[in-house]
Design a protein around this nucleic acid. Structure first.
Length: 397
DNA sequence: CCCTTCACG
DNA sequence: ACGTACGTGAAGGGT
């Protein structure tokens, strides 16, 4: 439980934010949304509540006669993957997706964050919750600082409003491929261990194995597919899940999975052993002994059973990565105290730590952080940390 | 208060 | 024949 002092300090420190810049972004998003709304009503031929999946479903599938891909319990699905498919045959779904992106950014982040600025400190103080998740990860609420946008132009623009205090910089340090490294260790898979020891690009290497061609000939698209496969392994892969993610037939996805396990017998054995242990014990454990009960592992309902099997495969990996960064946080927090540094840990985002660092401490802090993270636990493969500094969160990355 | 959707790792 | 990728939190709609 020594982590609790670290979390308390992080919450108390908070994060500085550029309120004026947020107000500008809000205006700009408001204008974008108005334009999109006008365009959407023109295409639809009528006005409606774009934020209502029900009303939108009526427009798309009844008025315009588009083919409903999937259904939900309550009606037509209008989720991202459905609209992405429809966008190939009609211009409305693309505009809806654009609208939703901007609406999300405006309401969930740009307009919500200023309301949570503490009047005394002028900063945002999230809550880090230690007793919420089933895997041992932290969660963050009011606001959730672990799902701040990062992708695309607007992700960058939003991260730029998280800034360092006067005479300080932000330092961001994140683990590279930590879950796959944990898998390499726990499965003792020769191929994975070899790749990480040699610091080879893991997705390119997987692509090379799956497509049976040299790494130099791997295209970005092949690498993207391999990356999806690697994530899939950690999630407890299934042909259906992979086929959905890659937009290919389940049969092909099944062949790819077989290919993977053919090249990674260690991973295959590890998964089999994890599942049989789960069936015998009724729980799974992380490397450090954290347990998660999986009472439904022997359920007679195949859906529930398979879902539990995916949990049982994922939890030891995700949970070990969570344990690992928690140890790093405690070590770094102790190190900062011992060295009498004013550097403050301010955020944890699962595999990333963010610090506010006085300019004269940058070199010392970098050394301490990188070292603390890379040596949190001794694994059979090295842990790798990427670290950067900047005046805002976007620059620090 | 549940459902759907979508932001992040 | 069925229906899923793992883990979170927040906003808005609709009952």
């Amino acid at each position: 439980m020594p982590l609790i002092y670290v979390l308390a300090d992080m919450e108390e420190a908070g994060t500085k934010i550029d309120k004026d810049r947020l107000a500008e972004l809000s205006k700009e998003l408001g204008r974008e949304l108005e334009t999109l709304q006008t365009r959407i009503y023109a295409i639809a031929g009528e006005t409606f509540n774009i934020n209502s999946p029900r009303q939108l479903g009526k427009i798309l599938f009844e008025n315009l006669g588009l083919k409903p891909g999937k259904k939900t319990k309550t009606g037509y699905s209008t989720g991202m993957d459905v609209l992405e498919d429809l966008a190939r045959t009609h211009e409305l779904p693309r505009e809806i997706l654009n609208y939703r992106t901007f609406y999300k950014l405006k309401t969930t982040y740009v307009d919500a964050l200023p309301k949570l600025i503490n009047e005394t400190t002028g900063r945002i103080h999230t809550s880090f919750n230690q007793t919420v998740t089933a895997t041992g990860m932290l969660s963050s609420s009011e606001p959730n600082m672990q799902n701040i946008p990062i992708r695309g132009e607007w992700g960058t623009r939003i991260r730029e409003v998280f800034i360092a205090d006067k005479k300080c910089v932000l330092i961001s340090a994140d683990y590279s491929q930590v879950e796959l490294r944990v898998l390499a260790h726990m499965s003792n898979d020769r191929g994975l261990i070899d790749a990480f020891k040699k610091d080879i690009d893991i997705h390119t290497r997987t692509a090379s194995e799956l497509f049976n061609i040299p790494a130099e000939e791997i295209t970005p698209d092949m690498r993207r597919m391999a990356k999806t496969v690697n994530f899939g392994i950690i999630y407890g892969i299934s042909p259906f899940g992979l086929s959905e993610a890659l937009n290919i037939p389940p049969k092909e996805a099944g062949i790819i999975i077989e290919q993977y396990f053919e090249k990674h017998k260690g991973v295959k054995d590890y998964i089999d052993n994890t599942l049989s242990a789960a069936r015998n014990n009724g729980f799974v454990t992380t490397l450090l002994g954290r347990k998660r009960p999986v009472p439904e592992i022997n359920s007679s309902n195949p859906n529930i059973r398979q879902q539990t099997e995916r949990m049982a495969i994922n939890t030891p990996i995700q949970g070990t990565a969570a344990d690992l960064i928690k140890i790093a946080m405690i070590n770094i927090w102790n190190g900062l105290k011992k060295q009498r540094l004013k550097t403050r840990m301010i955020l944890q985002v699962h595999d990333e730590l963010l610090f506010e660092v006085p300019e004269n401490e940058i070199e010392d802090a970098k050394k301490l952080i990188k070292c603390g993270m890379e040596n949190a636990i001794k694994l059979s493969v090295p842990l790798k940390v990427d670290i950067g500094a900047g005046k805002n969160w976007a620059e620090a990355h």
